[in-house]
Amino acid sequence: MTIRHSLLALLADQPAHGYGLKSSFERTTAGTWPLNVGQVYTTLGRLERDGLVSSEGDEHTQRQTWRLTEAGRAALHVWYDSPVEEEPPSRNELALKVLLAVAADSVDVSAILRSQRMATMDRLQRYTREKMGADPDRDLTWLLLLDSLILRAEAEIRWIDLCEERLRARGSR
């Protein structure tokens, strides 16, 4: 997740205060990625250093208002126009665990797959319960996020099924 581009995106339509940016970030992403206000100010400072945002202070309120510069708007467009790169496969702990278990002689791979399937199914059920209660009109961003999490969990279960089939085929040869 990139906080830099998220802040540029939130500033695209109107200038904002640092705390307001934190709130609108959390509102837009349905509170899934908690952001501390210190992170927001550190990032804004770096964006200003790089010429992507500018700030002006209010003498009375002592608060700074941040706005996007032309260079910031261009950087934001580049971000929106570029496909997201895949996370490095090494981050997939489950795949790593299964590969190591298959390579080891003394580990019961089927037991690992069974317990993971149930844990992932539990997670899928929790996401789905959230979805049942969501309003398709008012909670669109929340629903889109849940769909993304649900599809990822579903893919994990399908991968587990496939692992079992391949192991079974190998075992029966």
Partner: peptide
């Protein structure tokens, strides 16, 4: 019926990077 709060999903913030 639910079991977790909206803000608790995944804790992805821990993996956030600037």
């Amino acid at each position: 019926p639910s079991g977790f709060e909206r803000s608790g999903i995944g804790r992805m913030g821990e993996r956030g990077r600037e």
